[in-house]
Design a protein around this nucleic acid. Structure first.
Lengths: 141, 141
DNA sequence: TTTCACGATGAGACTCAATCTCAATAAGGA
DNA sequence: TCCTTATTGAGATTGAGTCTCATCGTGAAA
């Protein structure tokens, strides 16, 4: 747990007019320290397994703040549970989900990004965010 | 309610080993007759307002069959309620959702489709389906 | 046309992720 | 240190969607 990560969270909380608490720090630490795509329950259980007491309500509430302030990315895999990943110093990317293994692969394609903005522009809009998932299967050789 | 639409449904039900019922027909009619993007509850209420008695369970069960057989497209707007639209004689398209008005605009772009397949291929996969929504705002003049 | 096995339906119970409630707790400015 | 007020936690609640099971009705067979 480095001082930098504490500072970032403190700044965001101050900006939002919220107090700095150990629970909020532990939620941010937990998400920050793995680069997996986990759901809220997994994050909650992992924190508790580390011996820290935090409630589900606080986990959800904190994640909302982190997502709003772009420390965490929320993604929808389509199975009813949202997944979260840290986005600190993280470049934007989309995901492909393997339907056979459940693996989640990250990808980024500049051309794709530009094309989306162009399509929106053609309709008189500008893109504020997008949801893009490719559900895929391995190519058999 | 034309004979064609009844035939299509009957064929699908036969193929699936399911019986043809008035309830299944009314769900398909309801979705088919509007091109809006509605959730299950709206579809259910609309059927009942037409004086037809169908249960929520049957609406959900029937929609599943229609989605599986590509008569209906299921889409996820990210607010927890799935939306449905008819896809009979309908070309594939994606959606942009206006964050100011909630409007849902359909779009299709060949280049975008090809690019997605190319990206998946580069990772050793092939795309089976995709979820793609642009959340947009109108360009102010 | 009648019969009847078994698939379909409906009312409401249930599931599960996520949100809300509210009394008790603790942050942090004075 | 004090005190106001935001935060927390346990558990209740919500809401979309699924499941249960007694009853109903389709449609194949006779």
């Amino acid at each position: 747990m480095n001082g930098h990560a504490i500072q970032i969270l403190k700044e965001i909380l101050r900006k939002e007019g919220l107090r700095y608490t150990s629970q909020r720090q532990s939620v941010w630490d937990e998400i920050r320290n793995t680069h997996e795509h986990r759901d809220a329950e997994e994050i909650y259980m992992s924190i508790r397994n580390n011996g820290v007491n935090v409630s589900r309500a606080t986990v959800y509430r904190t994640i909302d703040v982190l997502v709003k302030n772009r420390l965490v990315r929320k993604m929808d895999v389509g199975d009813g549970r949202a997944r979260y990943e840290p986005r600190l110093d993280d470049q934007h990317h989309d995901h492909m989900i393997c339907e056979e293994t459940g693996d989640i692969i990250e990808f980024f394609n500049e051309e794709l990004e530009n094309l989306q903005e162009k399509i929106a522009n053609d309709h008189g809009y500008t893109v504020t965010r997008h949801v893009h998932q490719l559900f895929v299967k391995p190519i058999k050789k």
